[in-house]
Design a protein around this nucleic acid. Structure first.
Lengths: 258, 258
DNA sequence: TAAATAGTGTCTATGAGACATTATCTC
DNA sequence: GAGATAATGTCTCATAGACACTATTTA
């Protein structure tokens, strides 16, 4: 075997053209709950929304875009996105996942930018404080479908669409629905949240599937009060409904063959 | 709103530290079929293997590593990986998917390298010609579990492990098993391929699940010969077995709630 | 005829899917 | 008691899971 003499001293990365930056873009989803008239016992309306910022500078000045920012040398892409997410929402500990790289040549007029896309799911409650201060300015929540029809900066429309489909898929195959729910919730709330993200989802016997089916039992459990009695809620209904919470159990493994 | 005066002229990416490169790393899987003694009618042994290259230069000179290479300014990461895959295998039109970014600071001694990981599934038949020429040199197939226990360059062990788990999951939820099979195959072959990637997979009534179950019917179909008769194969058995092929049908949508 | 693989019969318990029905509470 | 949501009863058919059994061919 040939032993080459190249080593740390002779290696020079500057012989090659290198990227001009590695940004992250974050698709931040939330579900806005619009209660019916105060005191009225009825299920609320829910709407999937996404956070956009209005760009101040070239390129695409004035256009709406996904929040994000450039990665530093001393952080991973994940850390970078987490940092940007924190800056944008003012909240820590948000569920965030990586889902793709966007590197089509020419996608960014500033140069060779390889962008890394994340999605985040935030409970609207966590956004409560923030909205008041920033809402009027250059950060806003848009209904997903409205955002999708806007002229977004860069290739952010494609990223937004990809994120949505990934979240739809994960909503049905994992327990991420919990990110949009309070700690304790009713079956109707869970069902509504799933339908907000996946309108096609329909399951007439939902309550039995999730509570009495052998293979699914254990992903949620009934909440008991301090006396060991079943804890109920009548927030959305005359007849009080059982409260549930997600357990730590992994959802069942899915397979098309079994 | 403040209107900033920044524009194309004043924007300067060189004010920021930029990455030193955007490589791709490709985990190329294949399944080696080891026929039993010639003429013996018995199911073959199958083994999942992964392609590694031996590095010639600093860093990690002499160590085995995943194939890959640096992305150019005029190509997307996907194009880059496709190109490298083609160079390494000599084959085009290979199933390849992106699955993650590796950007931990310090992962590459050459500098700030943000690596993009793909996995590829190659039918061993396509590799047939290639092996003869390169096999002795610096490109080799290793059994997956052996590779996982080697001292691989960079963070390639982690990448390899992540790729494997992704492929396992996809093997059960999509029809990628077809990448490891000939156009026409028997149920036993399909079952064996799945088990080669996911040893835990076990399904005693496999044949009925996949052929007679309402929701799965249609993902494979019986092969007929020119006379419209069912086409059989006795390659691995005394009694001839029905041949099947994958259809264009999408596998059923999976959900933990339904 | 033993061995090896392919494929079917059959039984039980569970689940899917569809609706009707009952329960509980408020206005 | 009308109206809204929660939850159960009930029926049919499909599927899961287990295992014994039959089928086909060759050494």
């Amino acid at each position: 075997m040939t032993v080459l003499i190249e080593n740390q001293t002779t290696y020079s990365p500057s012989n090659y053209r290198t990227p001009d930056g590695a940004p992250s873009d974050i698709v931040i989803f939330t579900i806005e709950t619009k209660e019916k008239a105060a005191g009225k016992k009825a299920l609320p309306d829910r709407e999937l929304q996404v956070m956009l910022i209005q760009r101040k500078r070239w390129p695409f000045a004035g256009a709406w875009a996904l929040p994000g920012g450039f990665c530093g040398e001393d952080e991973s892409m994940y850390d970078c996105a987490k940092r940007e997410l924190q800056e944008e929402t003012g909240v820590d500990r948000i569920h965030m996942e990586y889902f793709g790289v966007y590197s089509t040549p020419g996608r960014d007029p500033r140069g060779w930018m390889i962008s890394h896309a994340f999605f985040a799911l935030v409970n609207e409650k966590l956004l409560a404080g923030r909205s008041a201060s920033d809402d009027a300015a250059d950060v806003r929540l848009f209904p997903y479908h409205e955002a999708l029809n806007m002229e977004l900066a860069f290739d952010h429309r494609e990223i937004l669409s990809d994120a949505f489909h990934r979240v739809q898929q994960k909503m049905l195959t994992t327990t991420i629905a919990k990110e949009f729910l309070p700690e304790e919730f009713t079956i109707s709330e869970l069902y509504q949240v799933i339908q907000t993200v996946v309108p096609e989802f329909q399951e007439r016997n939902f309550i039995r599937k999730i509570t009495s089916t052998q293979s699914r039992k254990g992903i949620i459990e009934e909440v008991l009060d301090h006396k060991g009695e079943k804890k109920l809620s009548n927030r959305y209904s005359q007849r009080a409904a059982q409260l549930y919470r997600f357990t730590e159990h992994m959802p069942p493994l899915l397979s098309i063959y079994t």
